[in-house]
Write a protein that binds this DNA or RNA. Structure first.
Length: 304
DNA sequence: CACTTGACCTGTCCGC
DNA sequence: TGCGGACAGGTCAAGT
């Protein structure tokens, strides 16, 4: 069945990268910025790299699945890894990455043929942006425009934010009663940062079928789904994310969440709760994994 | 208006 | 052994 495995950096993976970069990049000054595949570097106006070279990295943040590098020159770099993007950091003189070579899809030493942009810093360290499928991008935006970039403007609440409560989540659900749970949770304007892996994981933990309508949930189920989302995200964060195929940390290390995934990538394997084989179906055009026993299929009323 | 589909890409897997 | 097609999926634009 399933052939090539994606790896999908979602909230836990992007957060893992952001935290790691935040420990090494601030106060570093960018000495060179080499864009090998021009379409991966998006910027307005003619200045291009002139606002990047010589800039000091002030802070690294995450919003949804987007990384934000705040620079001292009044611009922010928005980095989206989409499915197969990697950011690999190498200290000066470092020979081997912690995860060992070769990185997925990077044969031999860096840069590889999927390396599309390279930063070098004042201390001799380097940051490589690799992307097998070239869907990702680096977008340079003046600080004052960041919140107006469409992807940023659309984001819904951060599911792990302290001030985002179960009641807030339940209230949002009542506004989308017709929506099916899976496409709703994948919608970044509903809640930011969930992708295919953690939607499947959260729905299974909450014992809810992905085709169930949001409006059909009881209040208890809405709160249960909220806590399930937080549980799977926090657990994955603790394990360094999910490495299905190409995801690695900035030091080349894989994440361990897949080892204890409940349903994702476990088609045919026994449900950890009841032993029933995990099934794969397609919902909203995406591979979807469920336990058919724990997650009862909703009775769909025929439209007349 | 809400939802679905296709495009963007490349490597892997499967069938013939 | 080789080749073509399906598939993987985040986001956006276009279609229903």
């Amino acid at each position: 069945m399933a052939s090539y495995d994606g790896y999908m950096p979602e909230l836990p993976e992007v957060e893992t990268i952001a935290r790691a970069l935040q420990t090494v990049l601030p106060t570093r000054v960018i000495r060179t910025f080499d864009v090998r595949l021009p379409k991966m570097f998006i910027h307005e106006g003619p200045e291009g790299v002139t606002r990047i070279i010589g800039a000091e990295v002030k802070k690294v943040e995450r919003r949804g699945k987007v990384l934000l590098l705040r620079l001292s020159t009044g611009v922010t770099l928005l980095i989206h890894l989409k499915m197969t993007g990697q950011l690999i950091y190498r200290a000066k003189g470092q020979v081997k990455l912690a995860g060992g070579h070769p990185l997925p899809h990077v044969e031999g030493d860096l840069p590889g043929k999927t390396t599309h942009a390279i930063f070098t810093f004042d201390d001799g360290s380097e940051l490589f942006f690799n992307d097998l499928r070239q869907f990702g991008y680096l977008k340079m935006v003046p600080d004052e425009d960041v919140s107006h970039v469409p992807i940023m403007a659309r984001f819904g609440p951060e599911p792990l934010a302290d001030d985002f409560t179960a009641e807030d989540f339940a209230a949002l659900m009542t506004k989308r009663p017709q929506a099916k749970l899976k496409p709703l949770l994948l919608d970044q304007s509903f809640v930011a940062g969930l992708g295919n892996i953690y939607v499947d994981e959260a729905l299974n933990l909450a014992k809810l079928h992905p085709l169930k309508r949001a409006g059909s949930l009881t209040h208890a189920q809405r709160k249960l789904l909220f806590s399930a989302i937080r549980t799977v995200l926090l657990r994955s964060l603790a394990l360094g994310g999910t490495s299905d195929n190409t995801y690695v940390s900035i030091r080349g290390e894989k994440g361990d969440y897949l080892k204890e995934a409940r349903v994702y990538h476990r088609t045919g394997e026994p449900c950890r709760e009841c032993g029933t084989p995990i099934e794969r179906l397609v919902v909203a055009g995406r591979g979807t994994h469920i336990c058919p026993m724990c997650q009862a299929k909703p009775r769909e009323r025929k439209r007349t």
